[in-house]
Design a protein around this nucleic acid. Sequence first.
DNA 1: TTAATCCCTACTAAAAAGGTAGGATTTCTC
DNA 2: GAGAAATCCTACCTTTTTAGTAGGGATTAA
Lengths: 138, 138
Amino acid sequence: MKLTNKGRYAVMAMADLASNSNERPISLSEISIRQNISLAYLEQIFIKLKINNLVKSSRGANGGYTLFKPATEIKISNIINAVDEEVKTLNCKKHSKRGCNNKAVKCITHNLWDQLDQHINGFFEKVKLQDLTKQNQK
Amino acid sequence: MKLTNKGRYAVMAMADLASNSNERPISLSEISIRQNISLAYLEQIFIKLKINNLVKSSRGANGGYTLFKPATEIKISNIINAVDEEVKTLNCKKHSKRGCNNKAVKCITHNLWDQLDQHINGFFEKVKLQDLTKQNQK
DNA sequence: TTAATCCCTACTAAAAAGGTAGGATTTCTC
DNA sequence: GAGAAATCCTACCTTTTTAGTAGGGATTAA
Ligand code: FES
Ligand code: FES
């Protein structure tokens, strides 16, 4: 399973966007400063967020990014998946009959990882971006 | 967060041990063949399992490993932790006041990762090695 | 026209993962 | 006592992934 800075940064940046936007686009340099993430790295992350229809961009001076849809409709899982950080706990291909280690049968721990997978993804499905905005932080 | 082959192998090997032992010690070469894991790599894993009192060893011919305590009393979290695969989703030090990125305050996503952490670790705490033995596989 | 901004591609340094290699030590069995 | 089977121990290595950096190009508001 993977969960690294890229995924964390993506969620941080989206939360920043959701917290600070009031219609106007937010530039990456703003986010870079507020969240202390390198601008060039942010750019790479936002390309993926854009491709996945989580944000839209406006170019040129005073440009920046805005959420593509309301923060109530964006799941954390959408963000994580967008930046290629799928939560993958299984070692084998999920929809194959074969197990890991090239065996013909699923291994003894397969069910465990499968359940964990559902457990984690269920969590990411439940939480919305809205839940992370300043307004909702206690 | 980390969850890689090492942790998976450790759980697999422990499940193998729990499934196949009838008092006599099980050698790593047996496990290596059954689970298709390199012997030398298994050795490294078992050193850690031993240090953490999850297995005990008997050296010499006919030696091998046995569970240190009943499979009903070994949690998956014990195994994962033993091989240094702690589930760590937070970027910052948990018990510090400082946030990630060296900020003085916890970041906007901190609570999310903290909850995820508890979610996953709760799962690993609930499941016992016994649940993975052949007898319990449907 | 200029500055701010997104867009795009390529490269790279450092760390982690996933082992391999080689030998030393212990203990059972013949 | 010799050999074989096993654990123990340390060092090294290769590949992949992570986490960026660098350098420019295209677009647009003022
Ligand atoms: S993880 Fe699916 S078969 Fe081992
Ligand atoms: S993850 Fe704890 S402060 Fe950001």
